[in-house]
Amino acid sequence: MARPIKLRIWRGNKDGGDFHTVTVDANEGEVVLDVIHRVQATQLPDLAVRWNCKAGKCGSCSMEINGKPRLACMTRMNSFEEGETITVTPLRAFPVIRDLVTDVSFNYKKAMEIPAYAPPANLKPGEARMEQIDVERSQEFRKCIECFLCQDTCHVIRDHEENKKSFAGPRFFIRIAELDMHPLDTLRNRKQTAQENHGLGMCNITKCCTEVCPEHIRITDNAIIPMKERVVDVKYDPVRWLGSKIRKREDIS
C-alpha cells in the first residue's frame, strides 16, 4: 500500500545548495533509493544520485540519511516513524559534485599508495596452498564493497580536510591488514608503514567506522587494533603462529 512521505533532499553543487522538500509515495517493502528514483521519474528528472546494483553489493549509493552514513538501497522505508520527514544529504567528508553525488577520488588516490600484494618469487600458478582458517582473517576484509561510509564517518577527516594528506582512513587500514595477514604475502613491515606513512597513528579507536560498515567488517577490533599492537601480535599470536606456513619477518625497531 502506498503512503505519502516527506523527503528533504539537499540539492546543489560545489558552489552551494539548499534543501528541497517533496512529497512522494512509498510502497510496502521499499528502500530509500526506490523513493528517490520515484522522485526522479515523476518530479525532478535531473536529480543526481549514484547507484548501480540496488542490492547492497557495489557500494555506490552511499549518502547520509537523517545525518547517518548509509547505503540508500539497504535502508528500508519502514525503519522510519510514520509521518517522519526523511532528510538525505551527500557524504560530508567529500566534495559535492551535484545533489547527492560526491567526488570520492580521494579514496582511489589512497588505494594507489598502498603497496601491492607480493607473492613469493618462486610461487607458481596453481601451487599455492593455504588453509581455510588462515585465509579467513583476510577474507573478512575483502568483503569490503568500497562504499566509503567508514571514511565518511571517521572524525579524523570528516571535518578536517588538512588531515587527508597523511591519513589513508579505515578502508585502507583494512586493506593493509588484509595484505599483512595474507598467508603468502612477503612484503615486510606493513604494520610499520601503516603507522608511519598511512596515518594509522592518527586513529584513536573510536570505532565509528565499524558501526557504519554495511558489511559488518570489524574494522577496529580485527584490523586496526591488531596492527597497533604489532609487537605483541608478531611474537605471540598463536593462530598466526600455527597457521602460516611461510611467515614474514617483521623488523621491529
Binding site: P125, G126, A128, M130, V135, Q139, R142
Partner: peptide, 13 residues
C-alpha cells in the same frame, strides 16, 4: 583462476 590467485585473490579452500 590460478592467475587471479597470484594477483592476491583469496578463494575458499
Amino acid at each position: 583462476v590460478w592467475e587471479l590467485e597470484m594477483w592476491g585473490a583469496l578463494f575458499d579452500r
